[in-house]
Design a protein around this nucleic acid. Sequence first.
DNA 1: TCCAAGGATGTTTACGTTAACAATTTCGAG
DNA 2: CTCGAAATTGTTAACGTAAACATCCTTGGA
Lengths: 374, 374
Amino acid sequence: MTGCLRKRVGPYSGTGHQSGQGVTIETQRLRAGSDVPGGRRKQRVSMADVARLAGVSSQTVSRVANGQSGVVESTREQVLAAMRELGYRPNSAARSLRYGRFNTIGVILFGLASTGNSRTVEAIATHAAAEGYAITLIPVGVPTQDNVLGAFTRMGELAVDGVILIIEVHLLDATAVHLPPGVHVVVVDSDAGDRYPVVDTDQADGTRQAVRHLLELGHRTVHHVAGPAESFAAERRAGTWRRVLEDAGAPVPAVERGDWSADSGYAAGLRLAADPSCTAVFAANDQMALGVLRALHESGRRVPADVSVVGFDDIADASAYLPPLTTVHQDFAEVGRRCVRLLLDQIHDEPTTPGTDLVPTTLTIRRSTAPPPA
Amino acid sequence: MTGCLRKRVGPYSGTGHQSGQGVTIETQRLRAGSDVPGGRRKQRVSMADVARLAGVSSQTVSRVANGQSGVVESTREQVLAAMRELGYRPNSAARSLRYGRFNTIGVILFGLASTGNSRTVEAIATHAAAEGYAITLIPVGVPTQDNVLGAFTRMGELAVDGVILIIEVHLLDATAVHLPPGVHVVVVDSDAGDRYPVVDTDQADGTRQAVRHLLELGHRTVHHVAGPAESFAAERRAGTWRRVLEDAGAPVPAVERGDWSADSGYAAGLRLAADPSCTAVFAANDQMALGVLRALHESGRRVPADVSVVGFDDIADASAYLPPLTTVHQDFAEVGRRCVRLLLDQIHDEPTTPGTDLVPTTLTIRRSTAPPPA
DNA sequence: TCCAAGGATGTTTACGTTAACAATTTCGAG
DNA sequence: CTCGAAATTGTTAACGTAAACATCCTTGGA
């Protein structure tokens, strides 16, 4: 038992010295010592301390802490009492070191600003927590190769058992970037399905539903306000939009390109409003749709009487737009859930193959769509 | 190219291996010793492995890894080469154990759904990263005492040096809850300023600016759509709204209460629209303001000609509402920044006192406000 | 009454890292 | 050429935990 050696004081002043001179040593002793009068030293209660107080070995404390059997009730009580008294909480660094696992999932993402990302992250955190995993977040300001790789490296040094990557992965494809091997990975919203397990919303199907809905209402064609070209999701949606039109034999208007923001949608909307032949718009996300709605309104074109608008995402506010927006509902929670599942499968060495896991979408019809004006 | 190794042998082919691939595998086996027949082991390269390959002691490897001086150049090169070849990355669990610090900040929060929260978290993550800290996220589904405490306990067991609490802390006040002592804490958006350092938006000043703006435009009084009663921020905003009206000698209408959602704002808006005397509305957040806008519109009341509306938050979409919303701008990024700063100060044992650190707000005037109808 | 079986508890060791100290080498001054 | 200081490298120990093994104590059956 290490207790009596504690006078070895030295190495550990570390973060400590709060004030004064030999204080470091003081505190150190204090910590190990009986109790903490001053009260506010860091977490420095080890199993050995509990064991000493309870008059048992630290192994017994370990057994109690982990709820293992083979500890007689009276002993257990005693240990629990000691733990309470000292405010013992296990040191997860030591645990991780021992087990070789961290019970933590890393999430690398571009930004939490987008509704989708934050909802996905929330779902990931929730499900990870349910499985006993915490999540560690690393935001990447600008998603350059270097930054992503850097984040990945840092993740590698961090205490994570696997990583979920929520980034437009075009970048990763650009050059021969290889995420550090030996790290379990799941990618969201990407076309890296040939190399990693990917979870994604079924962009194509959602888009198909949206565009067909408009065509079936009788619109001759559908205009598209796309997201930024670098975005995988944006490209997928734009591509499918084009294909559906072509399959239907409808003319394919020029694409308006935005950057996901409502303001960019507004700008695109102004251009569309100037085109009297435009009776239907499919925006690649709800925020741009919001901008389109405003532009149409300000241009004196009524929605849905003159022009129909469909969005993508079904964010919480979509039902409060003017008018309430018909949009493609994405199940972000499900995306998060599947990410966690896939990653944990990998971590637990269950067989996992690259490939894309598609989460279905549904079209939520509200009041922004109607047949074209007669 | 690591491609050819993908056959799953060298979990750790490493970023580096410039030379032949067989070497990597070789070393891997060598290192792993006998275990893991299948050959698919996780990150298991320790300093000792590197040391062995480089023909030095592991202490020297440690020195190189930490960039300490006192290692001759040739040795350093050799060690670096070995690290590259084996794909060594330090084990942070061991490091944490050694240092007694984790370089990680925990964030407990109610949900990422609200714009404010996610932007704050993003800022926290960014600034923490800049200081070499990662953040660990723990979401609390329903903010009951038990859940919050449970999350806190788990945080305690987790590898964090401090915790930022983004939760309506009314709950914490309710009973004699004691957050585990010895854990550094910063609270966001709360009235726990007597016990913990608190960072908060200047709710009162923001509200004051909003209400005064409306009064100065000539409105006789201002109606309020409040957030849920459990919310500290909502209460603070409602309280200030009332006080400003009283101070101005204006009548104080009954409060409409929502739950932050656009739908609840819509419901409140319908009630307000039915009151012909209502010419000005202050909503406690932008989303409810959005609902109010829609309700007024559908009730045939024009904004701002008939009714003025002000929101709170200045979310990204507010400028695209119909009409663009006058609102109180919150600097979430600054809130996050200050949280990190305050927490790190505590962690580094710099003097910190309980009290509230207020981040200023500004009123962003757009097109939803105007003088009352004549 | 004694011993075996099994339950309760204690001891040793290793996880990967690094501070502290020890040992070795290098190099310049006398 | 020697001696010792400085530079470089190696050795030991400890951080907190838990698996593996060792020891001690009951209990019950012969």
